[in-house]
Measured scan of single mutants.
Amino acid sequence: MPGGGPEMDDYMETLKDEEDALWENVECNRHMLSRYINPAKLTPYLRQCKVIDEQDEDEVLNAPMLPSKINRAGRLLDILHTKGQRGYVVFLESLEFYYPELYKLVTGKEPTRRFSTIVVEEGHEGLTHFLMNEVIKLQQQMKAKDLQRCELLARLRQLEDEKKQMTLTRVELLTFQERYYKMKEERDSYNDELVKVKDDNYNLAMRYAQLSEEKNMAVMRSRDLQLEIDQLKHRLNKMEEECKLERNQSLKLKNDIENRPKKEQVLELERENEMLKTKNQELQSIIQAGKRSLPDSDKAILDILEHDRKEALEDRQELVNRIYNLQEEARQAEELRDKYLEEKEDLELKCSTLGKDCEMYKHRMNTVMLQLEEVERERDQAFHSRDEAQTQYSQCLIEKDKYRKQIRELEEKNDEMRIEMVRREACIVNLESKLRRLSKDSNNLDQSLPRNLPVTIISQDFGDASPRTNGQEADDSSTSEESPEDSKYFLPYHPPQRRMNLKGIQLQRAKS
């Protein structure tokens, strides 16, 4: 015994090295194993092979420090690593049964499904019991997946119906949107047309105001020219009257000059006056001389005659003075006559000038009245044309509004008919989907599995289990394997941990 101590140590070291070499393959693929292994699927088989106990299973599945599946799978690998070579062998058998691809990844061999460990530990009855539990578990999982698949199909059909409904609603909204954009385009076109009409109206108003201003300026210029013409006519008439007055005065002077006595007659009258003065002096001298030589009687007679002569001279002087006064009065009367005649001529000139001015103003008033009548006639014609244009424009607008209203009513009726057609199509689609759903539900009910399987069917299934373990590994792997896509769409199922009653199965096998 003492001599065998070193050999035992060498043997233990060799086993430990082999164990480390075995687990080295697992550690190399630890990331892939932790990512894809579900500990809840492996722990029943590991407990059946007595590699882990209930406490280890509870620690792996329910520990609060292991929230994710990767953490739980890593903890399970750590626990199996502590179990040595047996933990490695049982772990590979569980991978061979549940995850053939991972088994091939770790060992590089094809899975054979021999279950040597569980046969050694529990015997064939334990293997049968384990396989029966796994089959029931798989059936329950398949039923749950079928239910989930039916629910998802129903949800899918519902979503398809909602999608069709949303599509129809979208078509309806597109119809309304198209109608909205069309009405918006019509409104924009009408606004552009309105702005264009306003611009045209403004341009016409500006043109009309400009023409009116030009016409008023032309009328004012015409009036100024007419006033200048009238003033020139007035000056012409005044000059004609002055010329006529000057002509009359010149004719009067000419007549006075023609009626003036001649120079010879004046000289002859002056000679006669001198001769008479000479004779008068001679007679006076004779009379003076006679007075001195005459007697007293003759002197008395001469005195009487002288007195008579003096009286006659006085009378004559009075007559001469009277004649002079009369001549002066006649001259003054002639001057007054000439003055009055001049005033008369001036008044006649003024009267004729005023008459011509009156005629001029009368003509001017007639011209202004004619212009006013023409302006009123043009204004009435413009008003009439404007009223006709406004009436025609309003009539066109009324007809346009009428046609637009008819078009809008027809478009609304068309839209309502399209919407009604879309709604009826939606109703038809809904009815078809309901009919299809009812038909599929009836087919699913016919094809669904019963909840409680008979014992004979279970025994028959387990009677055929042994050949399947040898020759149909691919079928078992397809039913027991969970793909990543299934984990996305289906909830994980945790079967209840219970042991099955095998009395009925044993009785059935005894009868057979």
Score class of each variant (00 low, 15 high):
G4F: 10
G5S: 14
P6L: 14
E7R: 14
M8F: 08
D9A: 13
D9C: 10
D9W: 09
D9F: 12
D10V: 12
D10C: 11
D10E: 12
D10H: 10
Y11W: 13
M12L: 12
M12P: 09
M12D: 09
M12T: 11
M12A: 13
E13W: 13
E13A: 11
E13R: 11
E13D: 14
E13T: 13
T14P: 12
T14V: 12
T14D: 14
T14C: 12
L15I: 11
L15E: 13
L15C: 11
D17F: 10
D17A: 14
D17I: 11
D17P: 10
E18T: 11
E18P: 12
E19T: 12
E19G: 13
E19Q: 13
D20L: 09
D20P: 09
A21N: 13
L22R: 12
L22Y: 11
L22Q: 12
W23L: 06
E24V: 11
E24Q: 11
N25R: 10
N25I: 09
N25S: 14
V26W: 07
V26D: 05
E27T: 02
E27A: 05
E27F: 03
E27H: 04
C28N: 13
C28K: 03
C28Q: 09
R30Q: 03
H31N: 13
H31C: 13
M32W: 04
M32L: 09
M32P: 04
L33T: 01
L33K: 02
L33I: 14
L33V: 13
S34C: 14
S34V: 13
R35P: 01
R35M: 04
Y36M: 14
Y36N: 07
Y36E: 01
Y36D: 02
Y36F: 09
Y36T: 14
Y36L: 09
I37N: 01
N38W: 06
N38Q: 10
N38T: 07
N38G: 02
N38A: 07
N38D: 04
P39Y: 02
P39L: 02
P39T: 05
A40N: 08
A40S: 09
A40L: 04
A40D: 01
K41Y: 02
K41T: 07
K41D: 00
L42S: 01
L42C: 08
L42P: 04
L42D: 00
T43E: 01
T43C: 03
T43D: 01
T43W: 04
P44C: 03
P44T: 04
Y45D: 03
L46Q: 02
L46D: 01
R47L: 02
R47Q: 01
Q48W: 02
C49G: 14
C49P: 01
C49S: 15
C49H: 15
C49Y: 15
C49L: 07
K50H: 10
K50Q: 10
V51A: 12
V51F: 01
V51S: 02
I52N: 02
I52G: 04
I52Y: 01
D53E: 02
D53H: 05
E54S: 05
Q55H: 11
Q55F: 11
D56S: 03
D56N: 05
D56T: 02
D56L: 01
E57M: 02
E57K: 01
E57D: 05
D58P: 00
D58A: 00
V60I: 04
V60P: 00
L61W: 05
L61M: 00
L61N: 08
L61T: 00
N62H: 11
N62F: 14
N62A: 07
N62Y: 15
A63H: 11
P64C: 13
L66Q: 00
L66R: 00
P67R: 13
P67W: 15
S68A: 09
K69C: 02
K69P: 01
K69T: 03
K69I: 04
K69R: 15
K69H: 00
K69E: 00
I70C: 09
I70L: 05
I70K: 02
N71D: 00
N71K: 03
N71R: 12
N71G: 02
R72H: 00
A73K: 01
A73S: 09
A73Y: 00
A73L: 01
A73R: 01
G74S: 06
R75N: 01
R75K: 06
R75G: 02
L76F: 05
L76T: 01
L76D: 02
L76A: 04
L77P: 02
L77E: 01
D78M: 03
D78V: 02
I79Q: 05
I79H: 01
I79W: 02
I79M: 06
I79K: 02
L80I: 06
L80G: 03
L80D: 03
H81Q: 08
H81G: 07
T82W: 04
T82A: 12
T82R: 08
T82N: 06
T82G: 12
T82L: 09
K83R: 12
G84V: 03
Q85C: 08
Q85H: 14
Q85Y: 09
R86H: 12
R86K: 12
G87M: 04
G87C: 03
Y88N: 07
Y88R: 10
V89Y: 08
V89K: 07
V89Q: 14
V90K: 10
V90A: 07
F91W: 03
F91T: 06
L92M: 10
E93C: 07
E93T: 09
S94W: 06
L95S: 00
L95M: 15
E96P: 03
E96K: 00
E96S: 09
F97N: 07
Y98F: 11
Y98T: 15
P100S: 07
L102K: 00
K104T: 07
L105Y: 13
L105T: 12
L105E: 07
T107D: 02
G108N: 12
G108L: 01
K109Q: 07
K109V: 06
E110Y: 11
E110L: 08
P111Q: 04
P111D: 02
P111L: 02
P111R: 07
P111A: 15
P111H: 07
P111W: 04
P111K: 05
T112I: 15
T112H: 14
T112Y: 15
T112N: 12
R114P: 14
F115A: 14
S116D: 12
I118V: 15
I118D: 15
I118P: 15
V119N: 15
E121G: 13
E121N: 08
E122N: 09
E122M: 03
E122K: 08
E122R: 07
E122F: 04
G123P: 15
G123I: 15
G123R: 15
G123Y: 15
G123S: 15
H124W: 07
H124M: 14
H124Y: 06
H124C: 15
E125F: 15
E125D: 14
G126R: 15
G126Q: 15
G126N: 15
G126T: 13
L127Q: 07
L127E: 04
H129C: 15
H129T: 07
F130W: 15
F130M: 15
F130V: 15
L131G: 06
L131R: 06
M132S: 07
M132Q: 05
M132P: 04
M132I: 07
M132G: 06
M132E: 04
N133S: 08
E134D: 07
E134L: 15
E134A: 14
E134S: 15
E134F: 05
V135K: 05
V135L: 06
I136V: 13
I136E: 10
I136Y: 06
K137D: 04
K137H: 07
L138W: 06
L138F: 06
L138M: 05
L138H: 08
Q139V: 14
Q139G: 15
Q140F: 10
Q140V: 10
Q140P: 08
Q140W: 07
Q141E: 10
Q141W: 10
Q141I: 14
Q141T: 10
M142F: 14
M142V: 08
M142I: 15
K143T: 11
K143C: 14
A144V: 10
K145F: 09
K145E: 06
D146L: 10
D146M: 14
